[in-house]
Design a protein around this nucleic acid. Structure first.
Lengths: 337, 337
DNA sequence: ATGAAAGCGCTAACAA
DNA sequence: TTGTTAGCGCTTTCAT
């Protein structure tokens, strides 16, 4: 068993200096085309594999962008990561993914772990972090982007939208349609902070219209999905049977609520209206289709990727913190009038 | 602006040798408790961040496990990665994720890219790879695990199940219930190879029962999801209006098909039966609930993680290629009798 | 339990 | 365009 081939071995085989091999492996370095071909051939013959760890150490560039999301199993966040990844790939950057299970303590641990890999940028979901996490991030000298939110006190850059404002738009629409008894189905207070912001927006909007804000059902800890939607609907129907419209923290919750109605023979939207959040596939294909808010998950990822690419290239004049505000869009469908 | 603190700086501040700092940062190294406390204090004060790249280079251990899945936005694969990640975390291993968009050419590129990061193990989805990919993997000297399939010629280790066999079980059940006109809704031949295996299992099963195998609707390239399910159902109803039961390549497809029926006033299961694959949440909460095959995505991830942990620890006697076969389970629900 | 010396494989910086 | 030298920050190895 021979040890793994290094650049030195490739250099010897190709009859050049190791530095030339190094250059041949960078697409933008100035190397004679013939020389490069010779090097590549030698590399192929030796089964040479470029060693990123050594490269990182010497060049002080990891090629990583750390991205932290609450959950892998969420089509919205997956869309954001997918779109960002696509943009960053063009810059030769790779995503180092971490997920927090909706816990900011877990986020703190994750940040610490990811920082050891020397990411060239850090992408966070949401604007709420532990104090220590903020301290760690403040010390980091790379661009930091908070997404999916508009934090009051951003760490640095932001690509997001106001969850509460988006929710307000939905409530206004329902009030417009004449509903006065409107409920909210969501999760417990502590964990899902975007869900919490939606709840706050919901309450504020009802208050502005002078409507009752007591129809709030908390279905448990995040992630609040279909099961929780069904359970919450059950509770709601028991506690407030005269409810006219239901606003849910996400489309998955809304779907759970919808099917619970269907199981009970309650017609949507004739007997009760239901709306979700996030424009998941399911809201477009459920029967009836579900009114929702399109938050443009992929757009968030794309813009975040572009922002990072721009900041790392650094060809623009020195810039301060950037903020890209996304405008969510109400999508009215069959589950509301 | 001071340059970033290194171990040397921490060592100086704590009045010890760099080597002692290094040991203090390994949980299992023999360091006096007081010394360690002193080191940690100095590190904290200096804002020291451990540099993984340097550690990797010298120790020849990256702490990475490369994992390649077809798509991020898929609850089944997300479950596998989540469960695997949880097991590997305990071993101090971090997942380096890549996704192929259901293309084995993309998989090849990804493998090449990930190999440069010196993963300590490689996890693949499926058993079909480009020739060059196989060559690259053959040269790698780390454990390789193929998942979600039982390849005829595995590269090395396997944690998976037979997609065709699982499908056969479902078809047998439907035939048992008296159906003879059974259709399959899936994707095009080329991309989704697990979907393809399911189709093959479907056809074989029908043939064994001496039934017609012509009701096959291909709805387009992967990922085949709700939209494709609805479209495929539309085509099916036009081409074979007397179909009695529909088997779908996944639960998402089945849901799309189900809702298409609902839009047309076709009752499920009274007028037509529908079954899916994968035990996604949606199949448990749709109304009616959807018959499906539970493939134990999380179990695949857990077992893969455990296998890797065992192989890397290497405390067992030298082992050959491992194969863990998962047994998918038919889950009969309301969408079939 | 702690330290000293050497070097992992690559590339920045400079030279030719 | 190509080569030479030095060293990135850590850990292996051996010594105490």
């Amino acid at each position: 068993m021979t040890r793994k081939a290094t650049m030195k071995d490739v250099a010897r085989a190709a009859g050049v200096a190791p530095m030339t091999v190094s250059r041949a492996f960078k697409s933008n370095a100035s190397v004679n085309a013939e020389t490069r071909a010779k090097v590549m051939e030698a590399a192929e013959a030796l089964g040479y594999v470029f060693d990123s760890a050594a490269s990182n150490l010497r060049s002080r560039k990891s090629g990583f962008v750390a991205a932290i999301i609450p959950s892998l199993n969420n089509a919205n966040f997956a869309d954001t990561i997918g779109a960002m990844s696509k943009v960053l790939e063009r810059e030769g950057l790779q995503i180092l993914l971490g997920y927090t299970s909706y816990s900011i303590e877990e986020e703190e641990r994750l940040i610490e772990k990811l920082l050891r890999r020397s990411p060239e940028a850090i992408v966070l979901t949401g604007g709420h972090h532990t104090e220590r996490a903020r301290k760690l991030l403040d010390k980091a000298t790379v661009p930091i982007v908070e997404t999916w939110d508009l934090p009051e006190h951003p760490i640095e850059h932001v690509v997001g939208f106001s969850n509460s404002k988006a929710m307000k738009g939905l409530v206004d629409h329902l009030v417009d349609k004449g509903f006065t008894k409107i409920a909210f189905l969501g999760g417990d207070a502590s964990a899902d902070l975007r869900g919490q912001a939606r709840l706050i927006g919901f309450i504020e909007a009802l208050e502005q219209h002078g409507l009752d804000t007591s129809r709030l059902i908390a279905a448990g800890p995040a992630p609040v999905a279909m099961r929780e939607g069904a359970l919450a609907m059950e509770h709601l129907l028991k506690a407030y049977p005269d409810t006219e419209a239901v606003v849910c923290v996400s489309d998955l919750t809304a779907f759970g609520a919808l099917t619970e109605c269907q199981r009970r023979g309650i017609r949507v939207p004739e007997d009760i209206s239901i709306a979700g959040f996030g424009a998941y596939d399911i809201s477009a294909f459920a029967h009836p289709t579900i009114t929702t808010i399109e938050a443009f998950s992929a757009e968030i990822g794309r813009k975040t990727g572009q922002m990072i690419a721009r900041l790392l290239r650094g060809d623009d004049p020195p810039e301060g913190p950037q903020c890209e505000e996304i405008s969510p869009q109400l999508v009215v469908r069959q589950s509301t009038p």
